[in-house]
Every structure is written in structure tokens, then in C-alpha cells.
Amino acid sequence: MHRALVVSLVATLTALAPVTAQARPDGGALHDRIERIAQEVVGRSTAGMVVSVVDGSTTPLLRAWGHADAEGERPLGTDSRLPVASVSKVVTALTALTLHEEGSLDLDAPIEHSSGVVLRDERAP
């Protein structure tokens, strides 16, 4: 039997909004799109899937589908431990590249200009 792939996606709703609007001009809701993806992959190419969409301090979507194992013995829940590895890096990189292409994010500018966060070296006096 093949091993299960459990997917966990963590993204910011505010960063995805421009991507969603551009990729889906008919205005389909993000929740509906994620539900369709889950229906297509869970039980076929993956045993289970967890999606968490975060917008500031709120979580407008936190949902689990399927099982935590290929045998279907352990239901997957939103509190299940998942081997996420570096999945969020891919989502962040694609979002940043899309925003850069749209002109919303200058990847060559210092981080302080776009984030308002002042970085400092902890090793400095």
C-alpha cells in the first residue's frame, strides 16, 4: 500500500486576495475553491488535507478532510499533528512572486520599506 501524503497549507488571506481575484475573475469564493480541491484530491492522491487561512488575528477557515493515514484508520482533525516540512515556503514564495509581478511588492527594496519592521542584528551592541 502507498504512503499517505497529508497536506497542510498555511497562508495569509490578505496576501492571497490579489492572487485569488486575478486567478478567478468570476469571483468564486476562496472557501468554495478549497472545498473543490479537497474533493478532488482527498482519497485519491492524498489520504487527508488540512487547510488553515489566517487573516491577522482571526482564522476565517480551519478545516480538515480525510484521514491521517493511508489505511483510513485515523480520522484527520484540525488538531492533528502533521509533517509539514517546508510547505509554507512554497506558498510564501509564489505569493511574493505574484505580488511582485503585479507591482504590489518590490522584491529589491529593503524589507523595512514594505513591512514597516525595523530589523536589527541581535549580535550588535
Rank of each mutant, 00 (worst) to 15 (best):
M1W: 04
M1A: 10
H2R: 13
R3W: 02
A4P: 08
A4R: 06
L5K: 12
V6N: 03
V7E: 03
S8R: 14
L9W: 07
A11Q: 07
T12G: 15
T14Q: 11
A15F: 06
L16P: 01
L16C: 09
V19P: 03
R24L: 08
P25N: 04
G27P: 02
A29L: 08
L30K: 01
L30C: 04
D32G: 08
R33I: 10
E35N: 06
A38M: 05
A38G: 06
A38K: 01
V41S: 06
V42A: 08
S45I: 13
T46W: 06
T46L: 10
A47I: 07
S52Q: 10
V53H: 02
S57G: 12
T59S: 09
L61F: 10
L62N: 07
G72A: 02
G72V: 01
E73M: 01
R74S: 11
P75D: 11
L76E: 03
D79M: 03
S80W: 01
S80G: 07
P83E: 15
A85N: 13
S88L: 04
S88D: 13
K89T: 11
K89E: 10
V90G: 04
A96G: 07
A96N: 12
A96I: 03
A96W: 08
T98V: 05
L99A: 15
H100S: 13
G103L: 09
D108E: 13
A109D: 08
P110K: 14
P110Q: 15
E112R: 12
H113R: 15
H113T: 15
V117Y: 14
V117P: 06
V117M: 14
L119H: 07
L119I: 09
D121S: 05
R123F: 11
